[in-house]
């Protein structure tokens, strides 16, 4: 009789105010992805076609919170993922996008969409389809509870691999100083 198939760990991933660099760094685990896929299956992720996050074991979130849609997606992840992980400098600290925090949002939009010299009849986009930007960029833990943080811009593939293998084998993830980078 064939052994009953072990239930796979379910992982969701998303990029909020991110650059997709943390996802690229995850793909940098290279052929280890095949080993990973034997143990896990992906729920909502930029790498799948699933539109909403369902019940999951692990949620990996890159990017900070910069607009209203980010808040909705993050809350959906928190509500569905047993373990929510802030991946990368943006999710952990707000990251380089948070450098806009000392500028007025109105001035930013005005500069980019109206007064920018190459524009002809510019206007600030106002369609309700578009999520409104927040006045400041925030790290994830200022909006929801976060279980683990992985710093790095991006965290290296080895860092992500160590973290995931620890988690998948039931250990508390522990990164040595050589895997903790903030840059």
């Amino acid at each position: 009789m064939p052994a009953p198939e072990q239930k796979k760990i379910r992982i969701a991933t998303t990029s909020l105010a991110g650059c997709f660099g943390c996802h690229m760094s995850l793909l940098d685990i290279d052929e280890r992805l095949f080993a990973l896929l034997e143990q896990v299956e992906f729920d909502r992720s930029p790498l799948t076609d699933i539109k909403h996050c369902g019940p999951c074991d692990i949620g990996l979130v890159e990017g900070g919170i910069c607009n209203a849609e980010n808040v909705h997606v993050l809350r959906e992840f928190r509500n569905n993922c047993k373990i929510l992980v802030a991946v990368g400098a943006c999710a952990v600290t707000g990251g380089l996008p948070a450098q806009r925090n000392h500028l007025s949002l109105a001035d930013c939009l005005q500069e980019v969409y109206v007064t920018e010299i190459s524009l002809h009849n510019g206007m600030i986009p106002n369609d309700p389809e578009l999520p409104l930007p927040l006045d400041k960029v925030h790290p994830l833990h200022e909006v929801v509870k976060v279980d683990y943080f992985i710093p790095g811009c991006p965290p290296s593939a080895d860092t992500l691999w160590k973290f995931l293998t620890d988690l998948l084998t039931g250990r508390t993830p522990k990164l040595g100083a050589d895997l903790i980078r903030y840059d």
């Binding site: 707000g94 925090n101 790290p139 833990h141 683990y148």
Partner: peptide, 21 residues
């Protein structure tokens, strides 16, 4: 500061960021 952070295993600032200007 950065080197001390990674040496001590600091994963996040944890607190609400001040974002001084």
């Amino acid at each position: 500061l950065q080197a001390l952070g990674s040496d001590l295993g600091v994963m996040t600032a944890g607190f609400r960021h001040f974002y001084p200007d």
